[in-house]
Nucleic acid binder design. Structure first.
Lengths: 250, 250
DNA sequence: TTATTATTGTGTCATAAAGACGCAATAATT
DNA sequence: AATTATTGCGTCTTTATGACACAATAATAA
C-alpha cells in the first residue's frame, strides 16, 4: 500500500503480504496499533504488500512509516503465516468482499502468505494514520483487543510470545521509552510485557549489571513522592548487547 | 518439487520458495545436507515450492521427506530471505539458466521470496536423496562447505546462528542423536554446535539439572577406556522443556 | 510550617547456580 | 599385571538470584 488512492497491483508481488504488530508503551500499559476497516468496522493489524523492487523488510518499514510517520523503527520478522485457509477464518476475505469493505476483489481474492513482523515504537512520537482500507488507526491496550480479521489474533499472540522471549536475551526499552526515563518506568515496562511483578531492588541490580544504562544527575520531579533519577541508554553498550545477547547459558 | 519427473507449475504458489538447512551429527562433526546441481555442479541447500493446498510447514516437511526418507522431522522457520537481487548472487539463476542446469526458465525466472527452515535429524536414519535438479545429495561438514548458489551461504549462516541461540533456551539432542547415547556424546554435540569446549563435569551437572535425561543401567562398551553410562531422553520432560524453555532470565 | 505518605536509593543476608579442579574407578591395550 | 585415557563423582570458590530492612525525600495534608 502506498499513499496514493488506489493499489497499483502491477507493482506488487503476488501471494505475499506482511502484517505488523506494533507495540507501544503508555500509561503503564502495552499498546498495539490497530486499524478499523472502513465498512465492516472490523479491526486488523497494519499490513501491506511488497513492491517489485523491495525486500520484505523495506516493505514493512515503508508500511510502518505510512502508519506512524516514523522512520528507523525497530522491526523484526518473527513468523510466516501460511495456512491455506487463513483467509477464511474470523471475519475473512469473503466477509470483507461481501460487505463491500474491499472493492478490488481480484487482488484480495488470491491466496496470501503473510510475513509477521513486530515493531517497537515510542508511543509519544507515533502519529497513527489509517490506510486505504481503514477509517481509524488507534492504539489499543492488549486486554481491550478481541476479534481481529483473518488470523490476526494468532499473529498478535505469537508476536507477544516472541517479545517475551526476546526480553530474556536482549535489551528492550530503547525503542519503547522516551530518551530519558526512570528506573521505575523501565521496570514497569518489563512487568507489563511479562505480565508479572518484579522486585524493585533486584530489578535495578540486574539491569545495572548489564551496563547499558547511564544514570543522569537529574531527577524526575512532579511525581507525588521521592523524585527518581533519570537514566538514558548507553547506546554503544546497548548495541553490543543487542548483538551478543544476555544469558549466554553455555 | 514432487517425486514426478517434472514440475507441475500450475499446482505451485508463485514467488514463494523454501530452503532447508538440515543438520545432522556424525563423527563428532556437525553436518549439513546439500545437493549438487546436475550440470553446474554447484552446491545448494535442499528446497522446494509450495503446493496450492499446503502451508509452508507442510511443504517443508514434504521436501524433507523426499530428501531424507524421514517423517516428523524437527523443523523450524527462522527467517524469510527476500532481497530483490538474491537470485543474482553467487552462482545465480542466470548462471543456472545459461549452463542449462535449469530447463524450465519460465518458472525459475520469477522473483522468489524464500522461507528459511532449519531441521535437526538423526544422521544414521536419513537417506539422502537428490531431487529433480541435482545428481547428488550429501552430508557435508560445515568447514567443508564453500560457495553455494544464490544466497544459500547466508541462509546457512543464519540457521547456524539460530541453532546456537536455541541451545541457550531449549533442549537439543533428541532429534540429532540416536535413541540411546552417552553423556560424552551429548557434550560433544553441544561443543560442536557452540564451537567451543565445555567442562565435562559442569556440563553433566547442568544437563542433569534440566531433568530431561534418563540414566540407564547399561554402559556403552567397545570404547578404549572406561565404559560410559547410556542415557535416553525423558520425552515427557523434554517436551515440557521445549515448550517452556530454559534460562527464564526474568 | 510541620507532619504525613508513598515512593526511591542503597544495602544485607541466605540460597542457588556456575566455574575451576581433584581423585579414585575402570575398560581396553600393552 | 601394568599402562593409559577416560569416566563417575565430588569439593571449593565465585557469582548470581531472591527476599527483605531502613533511611532519605518530594509532594501533599494538617
Amino acid at each position: 500500500m502506498n499513499r496514493s488512492s488506489h493499489l497499483d497491483e502491477t507493482q506488487l508481488l503476488k501471494h505475499i503480504s506482511l502484517d505488523c504488530v506494533v507495540f507501544g508503551f503508555h500509561d503503564s500499559q502495552l499498546k498495539v496499533l490497530l486499524l478499523r476497516m472502513k465498512r465492516t468496522k472490523d479491526w486488523a493489524l497494519p499490513g501491506g504488500f511488497v513492491l517489485l523492487d523491495e525486500s520484505i523488510e523495506i516493505a514493512a518499514s515503508r508500511v510502518l512509516r505510512e502508519r506512524t510517520g516514523l522512520d528507523h523503527i525497530f522491526l523484526k520478522q518473527f513468523k510466516v503465516f501460511s495456512s491455506p485457509d487463513r483467509s477464511n477464518t474470523n471475519p475473512g476475505v469473503q466477509d470483507l468482499l461481501d460487505s463491500g469493505a474491499i472493492d478490488d476483489s481480484s487482488w484480495f481474492n488470491q491466496r496470501f502468505i503473510s510475513v509477521g513482523f513486530y515493531a517497537l515504537v515510542d508511543f509519544s512520537k507515533a502519529e497513527p494514520t489509517p490506510d486505504l482500507f481503514s477509517d481509524l488507526c488507534h492504539w489499543k491496550s492488549l486486554e481491550d483487543i478481541d476479534l481481529l480479521i483473518l488470523d490476526h489474533n494468532q499473529i498478535l499472540d505469537k508476536a507477544l510470545e516472541t517479545l517475551r522471549l526476546q526480553l530474556n536475551y536482549q535489551p528492550i526499552g530503547y525503542n519503547l521509552l522516551p530518551d530519558r526515563f526512570t528506573m521505575p518506568e523501565l521496570q514497569k515496562l518489563y512487568e507489563t510485557i511479562l505480565g508479572k511483578e518484579l522486585d524493585r531492588r533486584n530489578f535495578q541490580r540486574k539491569m545495572l549489571s548489564y551496563d547499558i544504562l547511564c544514570k543522569l544527575e537529574e531527577r524526575k520531579t512532579g511525581g507525588a513522592h521521592k523524585a527518581p533519577f533519570l537514566y538514558e541508554f548507553n547506546l554503544e553498550n546497548y548495541g553490543k548487547a543487542l548483538k551478543h545477547g544476555f544469558n549466554g547459558g553455555w
